[in-house]
Design a protein around this nucleic acid. Structure first.
Length: 576
DNA sequence: TCCTCTTGCGCC
DNA sequence: AAAGGGCGCAAGAGGA
């Protein structure tokens, strides 16, 4: 069987075309038209059961090629090569961040034709009724008359050529791993959007009613408790009406009571000795829940027992995912109460403990820091070895070093770290210097950070006129690159974990694919698997094995461990 | 009225 | 003295 198969759905209808490829992307046979693409794909995936896996499916983008197939496939596909995501990785590596990465754009570049811009992403407002927009073939941006399958084949071959051209064999191997992991992410994202996160609307509603009062029957009016709090707040500030949602009006109201605030941020309000401050803090907390995750949010995103956000793989330059609509990666902790497994099912919630400092230890190969990262609580170990047991100081210092913090009383902590962990501190300092000088840095697997902006380079080339602003900008870029190497390498690891876990879950023996444990949530360093209760222990083991596999894949032979905190629960809120 | 920017806060 | 990285979202402010 061919190791790869190019796939292009017909613009309309259930059919499509397939073409077998070798690993370099050379066709092994003619294109084949199939009347039922899902059935044909499923048959070829199953035929691969004599081998470890089916073919690696090559397609323009999972959104257009995989998402529409999901409802019609008996089971999930094992592997893919997502041309749009890989194009983005390659372009950034080639110093062309932001260049259009659609199939049409890549194909046009290849042909020396004018390159079309990528279409703007569909707005969140339309995305619940916008299936036609979302899956429309013209999102591929192919010129009229171009053959989509031929374009997939040609762009894939070109990408494989660019991958093979990476000179250093180790770097090439790591980047290929990144390509595979990013593509696996595309599979996971499409599947999670399809399956949704279990969400109990009734629990959510009860929670909102407790916090805010009953759902207003007249749309646009404030819930009772929020309105009362607002009135109380105005009373506390002299009784003159103002809008507590208006930062300007709030500042004025406080000023009229002799309290000068530079902002209405909650940390500033906490220091204000006036009854109105506490009221405002409470009002803002509740008002935020109402506005961001209230009934309107539930109507838009969490109907029918599932929260269905849209995940954007590689949406952050560091390789972290972003989300579009519904704020999938910002679910407030208090709402985790509404995430409840289906009857007979459980949630396996696992998050990587202190991922970023461990990544720093592995990246820098700092022997001392690696020792502190070889066991359970890294900050505890760090505190014991360098901070007289003060865990808070250890944590503050290490985070400050990774973020480039200079303010506060952090100086002595940084000095201690420099003295005790010179390799680790040297690593982040070197990344910061590279950024300040206008250079680029890369993650462990080779995801490259964006180049410095043109204005920045102008400033650095002429330090005489750069002055204060230039120095400020250079330091900001230094903090960015300092953090990038860690955040992006952590994202490498998390993506490898996701790919490994997905493969392990699909290998679990189940009678019916509908009973297969599946990923329902992924947030930077945390995963949730929804699983039949009887498989929960196996899933928990699979997560742990995947974490270790990710460590090996990304960092090779390192003493650093990446332990997971895993909980098997009925409700997300009960995890840790 | 529409659009962009700012503010503030949720998550990692 | 101070300037801790990355996001998405909603509401208000203010200009076109």
């Amino acid at each position: 069987m061919a190791p790869r198969t190019a796939l292009a759905p017909d613009p309309h209808g259930p059919g499509g075309r397939l073409q077998p490829l070798d690993d370099a992307g050379t066709p092994l046979g003619p294109p084949e038209r199939v009347p039922d693409l899902a059935a044909a794909v499923a048959a070829r995936e199953a035929a691969g059961s004599t081998r470890p896996l089916g073919p690696r499916w090559v397609w323009a983008a999972a959104e257009s090629a995989y998402a529409p197939l999901l409802p019609r496939l008996p089971d999930r596909l094992a592997r893919c090569h997502d041309l749009r995501l890989v194009e983005a990785l390659l372009l950034t590596r080639e110093g062309r961040l932001g260049a259009p990465r659609s199939l049409g754009a890549a194909w046009s570049r290849l042909r020396g034709l004018p390159v079309p811009d990528d279409l703007p992403e569909p707005g969140s407002a339309e995305s619940d009724d916008g299936q036609d927009t979302l899956f429309a073939p013209d999102r591929l941006q192919l010129p009229p008359g171009a053959d989509p399958l031929a374009a997939v084949v040609a762009v894939h071959a070109e990408q494989q050529r660019r991958l093979a051209a990476i000179a250093d064999p180790a770097a090439r191997q790591r980047f290929r791993l990144l390509v595979a992991a990013e593509s696996a992410g595309a599979l996971v994202a499409a599947e999670m959007a399809y399956d949704g996160l279990p969400w109990r609307g009734d629990v959510h509603d009860r929670l909102l009613t407790e916090l805010l009062g009953p759902r207003p029957t007249v749309p646009g009016t404030q819930p009772r408790l929020l309105a009362e709090l607002s009135a109380e707040l105005q009373q506390a500030l002299g009784g003159r009406p103002f809008n507590p949602d208006s930062h300007t009006q709030v500042l004025r109201a406080f000023a009229e009571n002799g309290i000068q605030l530079s902002s209405t941020r909650s940390w500033e309000l906490k220091r204000v000795d006036h009854p109105a401050a506490a009221l405002l803090i409470r009002y803002k907390e509740l008002s935020r829940i109402h506005a961001a995750h209230g009934w309107a949010w539930q109507d838009a995103w969490a109907r029918g027992g599932r929260f269905r956000p849209e995940y954007v793989v590689g949406g952050v330059v560091s390789g972290r995912w972003a989300s579009r609509g519904g704020g999938a990666l910002q679910i407030p902790r208090i709402l985790r109460r509404a995430v409840v497994a289906d009857p007979g099912w459980l949630l396996v919630v696992a998050d990587a403990a202190q991922l970023e400092p461990r990544v720093l230890a592995a990246l820098s190969q700092d022997a001392g820091l690696a020792r502190t990262a070889a066991g359970g609580d890294l900050y505890e170990a760090l505190a014991a070895s360098a901070f007289q047991g003060d865990r808070d100081k250890a944590k503050l210092g290490l985070l400050g070093a990774m973020y480039g913090q200079t303010s506060g009383d952090i100086g002595p902590l940084l000095n201690t770290l420099h003295h005790r962990y010179p390799a680790a501190m040297g690593y982040v300092e070197a990344a910061a210097r590279t950024g300040e000088d206008g250079g680029v840095v890369a993650s462990r697997l080779g995801r490259v950070c964006p180049p410095a902006s043109a204005e920045f380079l102008d400033l650095t080339e002429d330090p005489g006129t750069a002055g204060e602003a230039g120095g400020r900008q250079a330091r900001a870029r230094g903090r960015f690159t300092r953090n990038f190497v860690i955040q992006a390498s952590a994202a490498d690891w998390a993506l490898a974990l996701l790919a490994a876990l997905r493969r392990r879950l699909s290998a679990l023996p189940v009678a019916d694919p509908a009973d297969r444990p599946h990923l329902v949530f992924f947030q930077h360093d945390e995963v949730i698997v929804h699983t039949p209760a009887n498989l929960a222990d196996e899933v928990a083991a699979a997560v742990a094995e995947s974490a270790d596999e990710a460590r090996h894949l990304v960092f090779g032979d390192t003493p650093v461990r990446f332990p997971l905190t895993t909980a098997v629960v009925d409700c997300y809120a009960d995890a840790k």
